[in-house]
Design a protein around this nucleic acid. Structure first.
Length: 367
DNA sequence: CAAGCGTGGAA
DNA sequence: TTTCCAAGCTT
């Protein structure tokens, strides 16, 4: 494609903006982050919505704002409590970056979310999309906010056959938005593009007959709307065999471990677990690795209590779960802590380890 | 740039 | 059952 934006000139800018914004004014969903334009709440919602569905986010957003209503509240909160509020949402670096960023807003910007592209983009976790979203929605700045919806919508409207999975493509769509965005209402313009992508211009079987901008759509005119956008496939996930141990002390506390500050599930808590070479040798390796990694002697009941499969986007964990016991006087100086089942509720666990607890420790203690 | 980083739902 | 995600950012 020599000129990806060749259809830009055929758009009647005024009519396009009007059709799009009036549709959004009529049809927009009633969402909790649309009650006001508080930059902090807009910010929180945009971080939560990254790669995450609206229906999933709604209860998390309400709880999070209830618990941390202001920048000050979040900045001064314990990271443990912040991660707990995010538990189950995934991509946990998002919320650690968010807390880092609100602290920076307090220190550098007197507690006011900055309103310039340069300043707001410098905040941890605020990339080009989130910067544009906050600037347009909270501050009415005519900045593009190009997410997956916007790329899909514009790939169709302007018949752009670029691979939207390639990072280099985003700037083409940003240029398109800069050309077409309403200077009078950039907030509704950007939100309308995303709302259109979510409700009408969906990935498969778009509802073109209900589309407010069908008359402006090059792909519809050519009948190729279901062939767009072009999106290359991701690599499939790799599999790992894991073994995990739910270990009780003599006084019925449970051993847990805090994961490292970087990488997968950073700073979340877990039951001791390791990658094991083969299934069937899991129990023996687990005992050995508990000694090597944590210096803890423990005993495991014979046999796998339950098997849990947990699917990430890039990894599949097949976890064999064992149950056993440990003498608490061997824990001194290890990276493990022993907590009561009641205390476990304060700690944030990945979903995989919530499953482990539900199918082992919780059930055992109930009896 | 490509890879790493979660999860629950829909097709 | 398998695939593909859904309002992306960091390294």
């Amino acid at each position: 494609m020599e000129e990806p934006l060749k259809h830009l000139q055929t758009i009647n800018r005024e009519e396009f903006q009007n059709d799009l914004i009036s549709w959004f004014s009529r049809e927009q969903r009633d969402l909790p982050w649309r009650k006001d334009q508080d930059p902090y709440k807009v910010w929180v919602s945009e971080i939560m919505l990254q790669q995450t569905r609206v229906d999933t986010v709604i209860p998390y957003f309400n709880r999070f704002i209830d618990k941390f209503p202001t920048i000050d509240a979040l900045a001064s909160a314990d990271e443990e409590d912040v991660l707990k509020a995010w538990e189950g949402l995934g991509y946990y670096s998002r919320v650690r970056n968010l807390q880092t960023a609100v602290k920076e807003v307090n220190e550098k910007y007197e507690g006011i979310v900055p309103d310039t592209p340069k300043e707001i983009s410098s905040l941890k976790g605020v990339g080009p999309y989130t910067a544009g979203a906050i600037l347009s929605i909270a501050y009415s700045k005519p900045e593009p906010a190009v997410d997956g919806n916007v790329m899909r919508v514009f790939s169709r409207i302007l018949s752009i056959w670029l691979d939207i999975a390639k990072p280099s493509s985003r700037k083409v769509f940003e240029e398109a938005v800069r050309e077409l965005i309403s200077k009078e209402n950039p907030s509704f313009f950007n939100q309308a593009l995303m709302e259109l992508g979510a409700l009408i211009c969906t990935p498969t079987s778009p509802s073109c007959l209900l589309c407010p901008v069908r008359e402006h759509c090059q792909a519809f005119e050519e009948g190729v709307q279901t062939e767009l956008p072009i999106k290359s496939k991701k690599k499939s996930a790799r599999k790992l065999n894991m073994a995990a141990a739910v270990l009780f002390t003599e006084d019925d506390r449970v051993l847990i471990h805090k994961r490292p500050g970087k990488g997968l599930l950073a700073n979340l808590w877990e039951f001791p677990n390791f990658e094991v070479g083969n299934a069937s040798s899991g129990r023996k390796q687990l005992l050995q690795l508990m000694e090597e990694e944590y210096g803890v002697d423990c005993s495991l009941k014979a046999g796998v209590v339950t098997k849990i499969q947990h699917i990430f986007s890039h990894i599949v964990w097949d976890i064999e779960v064992y149950v056993g016991s440990v003498y608490s006087n061997t824990l001194e100086g290890s990276e493990l802590i022993a907590v009561t089942p009641f205390e476990m509720e304060k700690y944030a666990f990945p979903v995989s380890h919530q499953k482990i607890w539900k199918e082992t420790g919780a059930g055992i203690l109930q009896k």
